[in-house]
């Protein structure tokens, strides 16, 4: 029996799922990235390794999220795909006939429009992160409530207060103002949910045709307050799919399965990588005034990959002994 792994390294969380041949999700893991993507992936895979059923071999692994290239190099990924594609693939499998995907993660939010199972349109927040998970986290901490209870408390509200949601800094000062006017906590939290939803629909969802069925996923989908605010604004029910918080990883695993079906074998380096030492370093290339900060990933004294150069001199370079010497001279 074959299993497929999906790894989603995001700004806030690193998610890993194990899926069987029939695309049933068997194990999921949601941990905080804490700014250390390599360690997070290694720790996560270690956890999953102990839960792979006997007799199952890994048939493929895919990565996604903002850390997809880095983690792809480390695990030996069969597919390295952006999070928009990954989320769309997962949603169309888990929510049959889905036409709209609302995704709110730690620092980004996106909307994906699907028609007949194909992505026809998408948008991502561009200039502002107001209304994403990090902001909710921060406000929950400020109000002294656990983020897990945020939604439940918001549901108790009778008359949500109106909060300016355009900018997270102004939203915060507006919230403080409302608190000092004497509004109660549930009304403020519900107001915040509505403000964030308004902001999302006006910015990310601007001009998009939001049709049912709608899937709501990403870490923020755990917040029932936000879900209800969406339903109130859209006027119909929305679905929070199972595994909503690891959908990117689910999609990555599906894409890995698809990729290995074409090639017939996996590039997965095995669970031994959890014990290996990887090093990410950067150096400034001084060959032109762009002064690119080239990132270099190495493991076991071997350079695995380089990127982040404008001209492609380093990322194109065959990682050979000759080139390595050149870098040493440069340093």
């Amino acid at each position: 029996m074959r299993g497929y792994l999906g790894v989603d390294v995001g700004s806030v969380s690193t998610n890993i799922v194990l899926m069987d041949e029939n695309e049933n999700v068997m194990e999921t893991l949601y941990i905080r990235t804490q700014g250390q993507p390599i360690t997070a992936v290694q720790r996560g895979l270690e956890y999953i390794r102990d839960r792979v059923p006997a007799g199952m071999e890994i048939g493929g692994i895919g990565t996604t999220g903002s850390g997809r290239h880095l983690s792809g190099i480390i695990v030996g990924a069969d597919s390295v795909k952006n999070e928009i594609t990954a989320h769309a693939v997962a949603a169309s499998k888990l929510v049959p006939g889905v036409q709209t995907v609302l995704e709110i993660g730690g620092q980004d939010s996106k909307i994906i429009i699907l028609r007949n199972g194909v992505v026809t349109d998408f948008a991502m927040n561009t200039v502002c992160a107001a209304g994403t998970g990090s902001f909710l986290d921060q406000q929950a901490a400020r109000l002294g409530i656990p983020i897990e209870d945020f939604g439940e408390i918001a549901l108790k509200s009778g008359t949500p207060v109106r909060i300016a949601g355009r900018c997270s800094v102004f939203a915060e000062s507006d919230m403080i103002h409302k608190q000092q006017m004497g509004h109660n906590l549930p009304d403020i939290l519900a107001g915040l949910c509505e403000a964030l939803v308004r902001n999302y629909l006006n910015n990310v969802g601007k001009g998009k045709e939001i049709l049912e069925p709608v899937a709501f996923q990403g870490g923020v989908a755990a917040n029932v307050g936000i879900k209800r605010a969406f339903e109130k604004a859209l006027g119909f029910e929305i679905t929070v799919p199972p595994h909503f918080n690891v959908m990117g990883a689910v999609g990555a695993a599906m894409l890995a399965r698809e990729a290995t079906r074409k090639t017939g074998r996996t590039r997965f380096k095995g669970f031994a990588i959890t014990q290996e030492k990887f090093r990410a370093a950067s150096f400034e290339c001084g060959d032109c005034p762009n002064l690119c900060e080239v990132i270099e990933i190495s493991g076991q004294d071997r350079i695995l990959a380089r990127w982040n150069d404008k001209c492609g001199k380093w990322s194109n370079a065959e990682v050979s002994g000759f080139r390595r010497k050149k870098i040493e001279n440069l340093a």
Binding site: R115, V119, T120, D121
Partner: peptide, 27 residues
């Protein structure tokens, strides 16, 4: 990347003749 994926998948779907099921809509 996401935009190219979108186009690629659309192209593949069209190539498979799936467009008969309904007119693909784009925005």
């Amino acid at each position: 990347e996401a935009f190219v994926d979108l186009l690629q998948r659309k192209k593949e779907t069209v190539a498979e003749g799936a467009e008969k099921k309904g007119v693909l809509q784009c925005a």
